[in-house]
Design a protein around this nucleic acid. Structure first.
Length: 932
RNA sequence: ACCCAGGUGGCGAAAUCGGUAGACGCGUUGGACUCAAAAUCCAAUGAUUUUAUAUCAUGCGGGUUCGAAUCCCGCCCUGGGUACCA
């Protein structure tokens, strides 16, 4: 008999909701805070990739509850972001509307999966009650500087006091301001001068940085919106352009972000990812004389340039110097005849191959008189954040070697091997040395002596650009008075994102520039009409750029602890109760961006005393992605022509440049062919397009990729749970493979889970009637149960959820064969399965006569009494590494006796075939191997 | 290009400490039940040939070891990230 999932699942979902089963309070119990990475409510709804994370965390949350923990398992939405804005541009529907619709849809879908979220704590980043505190935190970041001596952020007021007292002589800060000044000089500076110096100390500061500028669309593009140097929409060219932007001085925290990794439990690969992203580089900087000095924009002559060397001991092997295209002098360094091609190179967006360009200019070698070293511009190397220039040593560095090969640059050998020792030669004052350490010391000493360099530790991590020229984000609470930024008083927060009608970009500015009421009245402390901006008196323009979506998602996990607090973002009591996230589950794709930003943000809040923990997450688990095929067709750029994929390399088509356009899956048949008529109907703007066919059909390019709405390859869970039931869907998704591994979606195998659930149901039913026996179980039945209990707790420790389901299948099969329907066996089994299949187990629990939800029951622990104490050891017996037979021995028997027994075994004689034994290997309790 | 994963039967996978490769499931084949089908149950199922308690098998090529899916070196392929998708 099959169980009626439709009725049962609905009933329990209503029951959980009605009784607020998952609402969490700060009770006197051990706490456990489990969190899913913040979802973005996309218009396509929830897809099975998200579900994997929610199901995993739900299983764990239910498991932890059954162990007696007070589990916090909240959910909310990262509801600001680009897709909603794009949609608004296309349809003119306000993002506010679409976002709230999408959230409703998500909530419904999630609830249909039986996920035990505490919805009473729901937060949305686009809710003014939430972004009130995002804005507040931004102002705090703006009003802080980083003191390197005490390794923490401090109030800017302390810095100002210090400047007034001693100038900046004793200040050791993270700053781009390099000059020293006295208190006298400081006190005589104008407000504008003071503010522009302070800006270089603030943790949120304005400065110019490079963005992807698309002149035809009049907007800055995300990297995601660019393909082969052109905009995805329309295929327009994209350039690199410098724009004034807000930045967060995240580089100040590089060292602490690196050190803090020690305290996070996660995979080594995630730690690697993070530490590579932070990119600590130790070495030395060297200041070179430029052969052809350059004239900068303000007509100053620049004769020197700074570069980084990772291994100073190999300085005599240097054969080129590279500047990144973002180096402040990259545009000026080239000699006049090469100027044009170099500028051209810099303007193009980043090329992902080994690319670079010679500037025609050189530097002089610091230790070899008159030796000229060529200067290149390239983005092939990973540059540190400060110097943006690197010294190439092809003989001792793989990347330099590849680069040198590409551009035909000389190699200079500087050491040779002698008796496994490296001896320096060709190296001036280092010749004859055999220790890298010593050589390094000598070089650095020499650099210091000549005042042209020193040791240095720098980081690759760059300060994060914080401005977006977009509408759908948190307004930056800053106004400009005589071009100097001022923070809006915190008691006037939040400043609410104004409603506008036209979402199109406005020549590189945010659409907010059109807001009619977007000026700050300083005297009356309120937002007023922009018409009244008289600039020098009382009313000033408010910043029109908005915050990036990572702003709101950098601290949301704190808000869940105290979501309804109107006085502060988090109270001390609530923080002391929940402390930090115990388990953070989310995709590996967030391993850099989000995880770096939120750790930075967290450390800042700690520095300023608003929270107590150094790291926000105790343990991070990355779920693998669920991949699915996406389909693209080739369109000729600037022409209304599509060509079949196989024709791409045909002679006649080779001169065209193409753009790949994603198409919806329903337009493609199983052979990768596009239904052209249906395509034209779906996209009327392409109605007159011409299609070049191959062999009478139009072939698409297909690719296995992560699911994403923009790729049209998302699979929605709704139809699966409708057809099979939620419990089956949950189990199936987990059964697909290890949680951490990415996998390809395929729903063909779901039958196996369906069979399992039916078998499980039938353990309790005979001819459709619920029937459980009260007879005392046999020792074998107890053994099976306790063995399963044991292995499930073990596997839970390392999240091997797919094999736990295998264990369930095994025990259900065994009990079915034994026709066991004994309460004393089945009740614990129901409790074990409950976190995985919550609906069917609630139903059975209820039928077993229990009054309270199974959620309140304790998960069983195994009892040694029922587990066979093994008094025998099973040995596989191998001959020349091949298994031939298996023998069991008494645990107490000696190795000598085993050896004797095996030697005299008739099978031994059989396998030896008259040959003699060369070696007998026995690894106690493991294996016996006989070599002959 | 760089960084991080992954690659095991027809398919999803298991083997968590270097020790019996393929647990569990899907699919396929055969059988039982049935007038028949579905469902269910039972059995077989890595490949090869000489059918032997044979040989070969964990992306490819080497190495370490009595023993390697697992460790080391060099490749190939797939996926993710590369700083404005989230």
């Amino acid at each position: 008999m099959e169980y009626n999932y439709q009725e049962i699942e609905k009933r329990w979902q209503i029951y959980w909701k009605k009784n607020n089963i998952f609402r969490t309070k700060e009770k006197k119990k051990l706490k456990y805070y489990i969190l899913n990475m913040f979802p973005y409510p996309s218009g396509a709804g929830l897809h099975i990739g998200h579900c994997l994370g929610y199901i995993t965390s739900d299983i764990y949350a239910r498991y932890k509850r059954s162990q007696g923990y007070n589990v916090l398992n909240p959910i909310g939405f990262d509801s600001f972001g680009l897709p909603a804005e794009q949609y608004a541009i296309q349809t003119n529907k306000h993002p506010f509307e679409t976002t709230s619709q999408n959230i409703k849809k998500y909530k419904n879908q999630i609830n249909n999966l039986g996920i035990s979220f505490d919805w009473s704590r729901k937060i949305c980043t686009s809710d003014p009650n939430y972004y009130h505190w995002t804005q507040w935190m931004f102002i705090q970041i703006y009003n802080s500087w980083y003191d390197k001596d005490s390794e923490k952020a401090k109030s800017i007021n302390l810095l100002i006091k210090e400047f007034q007292k001693n100038g900046n002589f004793y200040v050791n800060a993270s700053t781009s301001f390099e000059k020293k000044f006295s208190s006298n000089i400081w006190n005589q500076l104008s407000v504008l001068e003071k503010e522009s110096i302070l800006l270089k100390y603030r943790l949120a500061y304005l400065s110019k940085s490079v963005v992807n500028w698309c002149p035809d669309l009049g907007t800055v593009l995300a990297n995601d919106e660019i393909e082969n140097g052109r905009s995805q929409r329309g295929g327009f060219p994209v350039q690199r352009k410098k724009m004034k932007q807000w930045h967060l001085r995240i580089s100040a925290y590089a060292n602490r972000l690196l050190k803090g990794l020690k305290y996070i439990e996660c995979s080594d690969s995630l730690k690697n990812l993070q530490s590579n992203w932070i990119g600590e580089l130790t070495g030395a900087f060297v200041v070179f004389d430029i052969v052809y000095p350059i004239y900068s924009k303000n007509n100053k002559i620049i004769k020197k340039i700074k570069s980084f060397i990772h291994h100073p001991e190999y300085i005599f092997g240097m054969s080129f110097v590279v500047l990144s295209s973002e180096h402040p002098l990259s545009k000026e360094i080239a000699i006049p005849s090469d100027q044009k091609k170099v500028l051209n190179f810099i303007q193009k967006t980043k090329n992902k191959n080994i690319s670079g360009i010679f500037t025609g200019n050189y530097v002089f070698h610091p230790f070899i008189t008159d030796q000229k070293i060529p200067i290149f511009i390239s983005d092939y190397f990973s540059f540190d954040n400060q110097i943006e220039s690197i010294i190439g040593i092809p003989c001792n560095d793989k990347k330099s070697e590849k680069f040198a090969n590409e551009f035909g640059i000389n190699f200079i050998q500087v050491n040779f091997c002698k008796k496994s020792q490296k001896i320096f030669f060709n190296s001036g004052f280092l010749n004859g040395l055999n220790s890298n350490k010593e050589a390094k010391k000598k070089v650095i000493a020499k650099l210091i002596e000549k005042k042209i360099g020193n040791k240095i530790t720098t980081y690759k991590i760059r300060d994060a650009i914080f401005s977006r020229q977009r509408y759908w984000g948190e307004p930056i609470p800053i106004y400009f008075k005589n071009k100097i930024p001022y923070a809006i008083p915190i008691e006037k927060l939040p400043i609410i994102l104004p409603k506008i009608e036209n979402f199109h970009p406005s020549d590189g500015k945010s659409p907010l520039i059109r807001a009619k009421k977007w000026a700050w009245d300083e005297k009356n402390m309120k937002i007023v009409s922009s018409i009244n901006i008289d600039d020098k008196k009382n009313i000033f323009p408010i910043e029109t750029d908005t915050m990036p979506s990572w702003a709101g998602s950098s601290w949301y996990y704190l808000r869940y602890m105290d979501p309804h607090n109107t006085k502060f973002f988090l109270s001390k009591e609530k923080e002391n109760f929940w402390k930090k996230v115990d388990l953070y589950i989310g995709g590996y794709e967030h391993g850099t961006g989000h995880l770096i930003y939120s750790r930075f943000w967290h450390k800042f809040l700690k520095d300023r005393g608003w929270i107590n923990t150094e790291e926000p997450f105790k343990k991070v688990l990355n779920q693998g992605m669920i991949l699915n095929y996406s389909y693209k067709i080739l369109k000729v750029i600037d022409k209304n022509i599509f060509i079949s994929y196989g024709l791409k390399n045909k002679e006649i088509f080779r001169s065209y440049s193409y753009q790949e356009i994603y198409v919806k899956t329903n337009l493609i048949n199983k052979k990768n062919e596009l239904d052209i008529n249906l395509f034209k109907k779906t996209y009327p703007s392409f109605y007159d397009s011409y299609f070049y066919l191959e062999n009478g059909v139009f072939i698409c390019k297909n690719k296995l990729e992560k699911m994403s709405k923009s790729k049209y390859n998302v699979v929605n869970p709704d139809h699966i749970s409708k057809k099979y039931g939620v419990d089956i869907f949950r189990l199936y998704e987990i059964f697909l493979g290890p949680v951490t591994q990415s996998k390809c979606w395929d729903d063909k195998k779901i039958n196996g889970i369906k069979n399992f659930i039916n078998k499980f149901w039938n353990l309790f039913h005979k001819n459709g009637v619920f029937q459980v026996s009260e007879i005392y179980p046999s020792s074998k039945e107890y053994y099976i149960l306790h063995h399963t209990i044991n292995s499930i707790h073990e596997k839970m420790k390392y999240f091997s959820l797919n094999t736990i389901i295998s264990s369930f299948m095994i025990i259900v099969n065994q009990l079915t064969i034994m026709k066991c329907n004994k309460r004393k066996i089945l009740e614990p089994l129901v409790k074990l399965i409950a976190p995985f299949a919550p609906h069917i187990t609630e139903e059975i629990w209820n039928k077993l006569g229990k009054k309270k939800s199974i959620i309140y029951s304790k998960i069983p622990m195994s009892n040694i009494k029922y587990l066979n104490k093994k008094d025998k050891v099973k040995y596989p017996i191998m001959f020349n590494n091949k298994l031939k037979f298996v023998e069991s021995f008494d645990k107490n028997i000696s190795i000598k006796e085993i050896k004797n027994y095996i030697f005299n075994h008739y099978k031994t004689k059989l396998f030896l075939k008259k040959k003699t034994i060369k070696k007998f290997i026995i690894i106690p309790n493991k294996i016996i191997n006989i070599l002959f």
